[in-house]
């Protein structure tokens, strides 16, 4: 038996507990995983403040940026969940298209007698959720990689949307949601408030619920998580379903913001949203980054694109700038030492 030399040690407070407020803040920042994103955001804003002679910091423009970032942020809050579990979701365009068409046809419109009023919000979310549920079930139960499952599903849903929509532009005649979206009781448009709330809720879900933590367990080491008792399939299905719900909400907002619904609603949204998620620091290998990262990624890209519009940069150079920013952002934030061989 060794002498119990550690009796006093056992009583001491671990170092990690101590520290001044500054240290605590520093630690919190480091652990929050958004420091790089915060810096990038400030940097982008600063660069364009110079480039546009401060025009991008005008109140009106900040309003515009916030409300434009809202819908992509909601979609990113959904999509990043499927990346956190180590998969990917390419079904965004199809889901948004189908939800948009349903939302259009169920609201008061010129083409049919439907009018579900504000119920259209939960219904839209539910349709999106159902699409995500099917995706998740196909992915886990048939054991098809998420990349190809969601690609196929996207085509199916988009095809259905076009089939149902039959090229109508469905004008909504109920502008309650539209009015709500653009109202500014809190100083910024409600749609931005909604997006922020969604990001916070999803972040809260990820941080503070069991299932939320299981998402990260699955993303970190799926086989181990399964061995430790995580119901991996259920967690994955949930991730896709929640993502679907958020696409549904995104579709509701997209349609109402414009006052018209078509199957084109989700066009060209997928890759910008994935880019935003990656720029925000959500690792495509899974298990790292949360809704706050997705939110920051979206903000960075929105500020970037807004700045380029204000500076009247050639619209087609904008794609290139996005590409450069994507690679640069990942190059700076990815901790490659831990990853071994990168594929």
């Amino acid at each position: 038996m060794r002498p119990a030399a550690s009796n006093t040690d056992a009583m001491r407070v671990p170092k990690s507990m101590s520290g001044t407020a500054v240290e605590v803040t520093k630690r919190w920042l480091r652990r929050s995983g958004i420091v790089a994103q915060l810096i990038s955001l400030v940097l982008v804003i600063a660069v364009f403040a110079l480039g546009t002679e401060g025009k991008n910091l005008s109140g009106a423009n900040i309003q515009v940026v916030l409300s434009l970032a809202a819908i992509p942020a909601i979609l990113a809050a959904g999509l990043h969940l499927t990346i956190v579990i180590g998969g990917i979701d390419l079904s965004l365009q199809g889901t948004v298209a189908l939800c948009a068409v349903f939302v259009g046809l169920l609201s008061r419109n010129k083409f049919n007698g439907n009018d579900v009023g504000l119920w259209v919000v939960p219904i839209g979310i539910a349709i999106g959720g159902a699409c995500g549920l099917v995706t998740g079930l196909l992915h886990t139960k048939l054991r098809i990689p998420s990349f190809i499952t969601t690609l196929g599903i996207s085509w199916v849903l988009y095809g259905l949307a076009v089939y149902i929509n039959r090229a109508m532009i469905i004008s909504l005649q109920d502008d309650r949601i539209q009015t709500f979206i653009n109202d500014k009781p809190l100083g910024i448009a409600n749609i931005a408030v909604v997006a922020l709330a969604i990001a916070l809720i999803v972040q809260f879900f990820e941080d503070r619920t069991r299932t939320g933590r299981y998402l990260y367990a699955v993303g970190g080491d799926e086989a181990l998580a399964k061995q430790l008792g995580v119901k991996v399939d259920r967690v994955k299905i949930l991730a896709f379903a929640v993502a679907g719900c958020l696409y549904g909400l995104g579709a509701v907002l997209l349609v109402n913001r414009m006052g018209t619904a078509t199957s084109r609603a989700g066009l060209n949204l997928l890759f910008p949203v994935i880019t935003a998620v990656a720029v925000g620091g959500v690792s495509l290998t899974g298990g790292l980054g949360g809704a706050k990262n997705a939110l920051f990624g979206t903000l960075i890209l929105t500020v970037l694109n807004n700045g380029m519009v204000l500076m009247a940069v050639n619209p087609y150079a904008q794609t290139a700038v996005n590409g450069v920013v994507l690679i640069a952002a990942v190059a700076l934030t990815l901790d490659r030492k831990k990853l071994g061989f990168i594929k």
């Binding site: 087609y316 150079a317 290139a320 590409g323 450069v324 690679i327 990942v330 990815l334 990168i342």
Partner: peptide
């Protein structure tokens, strides 16, 4: 050392431009 998914997503945008 950037995963090919991200790398080619980025270069794809640049080449399109």
């Amino acid at each position: 050392k950037i995963p090919s998914f991200i790398a080619t997503l980025g270069t794809g945008g640049i080449i399109t431009s």
